Amino acid sequence: MRRTIIQLICCLLLISVLSSGCIATEKEPVEREYANDVIYQTSTISALLEGMYEGDLTMGELKEHGDLGLGTFNDLDGEMVLLDGIAYQVKADGIAYKAENSMKTPFAAVTKFESDINETIWQEMNNTELTAYMATLMPSRNLMYAIKIEGNFSYMKTRSVPAQQKPYPRLADVTKEQPTFEFDNVSGTIVGFWLPEYVENVNIPGYHLHFIDSNGSAGGHVLEYTIRSGDVHIDVTDGFFMQCPATEGFLNVDLSGERIEEITQVER
């Protein structure tokens, strides 16, 4: 009888606490301004540096995860620019071609772009000045940012890389002889990302940007530019998902060690 009374008292106390909200029966979701923003990536920059130029993800599959981004294609055959859901392949001749959904990528990063920060540029800036200005717009150096710059450029310098054959050379060796392209008075769009230092070996810390002109006919990996006027759009991102390729090369390559010097070299 005594045990029954004690059990009844405990039950009444528990009901009282639950009804007062002191104990939650279900965890309330935390609302964050950027909670649904995710960068989707296949493979790692360190694998690409090691010459892992074969992936198993198709462009059609990649575009399910984003409509803006960048990367490359199997055999390192050119620079990828993904803009408004359209994928371009800027080959070693500097010409941009529409990428087929069946084409595969060994490395790419994309996101479903939804701009959070929008600024108009009215004065001429070179790439050093504009990237420094964009850094002042970012609320934290620990978040990730997708970037789209639509503008009129008085100067644009890009590069691409030619398709490679097995045995694949290291990326740093390929970029030593990369073809570069210069454009004067060109309009188009820069797409890419700014990522924090802690992504080293997974992706490229800092800015990684690709360009496609307004006709979708030329572009490449951005090296230098001067913008005359345009609009800067920044998507603040707090989520990151990486898919590892199931290729033999990726499964067996040694990805240990730091590669920041190599990353700096191939980004120049």
Score class of each variant (00 low, 15 high):
residue 79 E to A: 10
residue 92 A to H: 09
residue 112 K to H: 14
residue 103 M to Y: 12
residue 73 F to S: 00
residue 256 S to V: 03
residue 112 K to S: 13
residue 145 Y to P: 03
residue 23 I to M: 04
residue 84 D to E: 15
residue 213 D to W: 04
residue 186 V to D: 03
residue 74 N to P: 10
residue 66 G to Y: 07
residue 191 V to Y: 11
residue 251 L to W: 02
residue 21 G to V: 01
residue 110 V to R: 05
residue 188 G to K: 01
residue 32 R to L: 09
residue 174 V to H: 14
residue 209 L to E: 10
residue 120 T to N: 12
residue 238 D to L: 02
residue 5 I to C: 12
residue 88 Y to K: 00
residue 160 S to D: 11
residue 166 K to M: 09
residue 122 W to Q: 11
residue 108 A to L: 09
residue 220 G to D: 08
residue 224 E to N: 06
residue 199 V to Q: 05
residue 106 P to L: 07
residue 188 G to Q: 05
residue 195 L to P: 00
residue 244 C to N: 10
residue 228 R to W: 09
residue 185 N to A: 02
residue 69 G to M: 05
residue 168 Y to K: 03
residue 43 S to D: 11
residue 121 I to F: 10
residue 8 L to F: 12
residue 209 L to A: 06
residue 66 G to F: 05
residue 217 S to M: 10
residue 233 H to F: 07
residue 252 N to G: 07
residue 145 Y to M: 03
residue 2 R to W: 11
residue 110 V to S: 06
residue 13 L to S: 09
residue 36 N to Q: 14
residue 46 S to Q: 09
residue 68 L to V: 08
residue 134 M to K: 10
residue 87 A to Q: 04
residue 208 H to Y: 15
residue 265 Q to K: 09
residue 181 F to R: 02
residue 128 T to E: 13
residue 136 T to Y: 07
residue 40 Y to A: 06
residue 40 Y to H: 14
residue 3 R to F: 10
residue 119 E to P: 00
residue 156 M to T: 11
residue 243 Q to C: 06
residue 112 K to G: 02
residue 240 F to H: 14
residue 168 Y to I: 12
residue 185 N to L: 01
residue 46 S to M: 06
residue 91 K to D: 15
residue 199 V to C: 02
residue 123 Q to H: 11
residue 159 R to H: 09
residue 144 M to I: 00
residue 166 K to Q: 07
residue 13 L to A: 15
residue 258 E to I: 08
residue 13 L to N: 11
residue 47 A to N: 04
residue 256 S to E: 13
residue 214 S to R: 00
residue 105 T to A: 07
residue 116 D to I: 01
residue 240 F to Y: 15
residue 123 Q to D: 15
residue 77 D to V: 04
residue 218 A to T: 10
residue 256 S to H: 04
residue 69 G to F: 05
residue 67 D to F: 04
residue 108 A to D: 08
residue 165 Q to C: 01
residue 34 Y to K: 02
residue 242 M to P: 00
residue 228 R to I: 12
residue 165 Q to N: 10
residue 86 I to M: 14
residue 109 A to L: 11
residue 179 P to M: 13
residue 3 R to E: 15
residue 142 N to V: 05
residue 168 Y to L: 10
residue 86 I to P: 04
residue 179 P to H: 08
residue 9 I to W: 09
residue 241 F to S: 12
residue 5 I to T: 13
residue 253 V to S: 02
residue 258 E to V: 07
residue 22 C to N: 15
residue 76 L to A: 08
residue 184 D to M: 08
residue 141 R to P: 08
residue 214 S to Q: 03
residue 161 V to W: 10
residue 89 Q to R: 14
residue 154 S to Q: 12
residue 16 S to F: 13
residue 96 A to Y: 03
residue 84 D to K: 02
residue 118 N to Y: 12
residue 114 E to A: 01
residue 184 D to I: 10
residue 212 I to Q: 04
residue 117 I to V: 15
residue 55 G to Q: 03
residue 21 G to W: 11
residue 222 V to Q: 04
residue 61 E to R: 01
residue 30 V to D: 15
residue 34 Y to Q: 05
residue 67 D to K: 02
residue 262 E to S: 05
residue 17 V to P: 03
residue 60 G to N: 08
residue 213 D to E: 07
residue 139 P to Y: 02
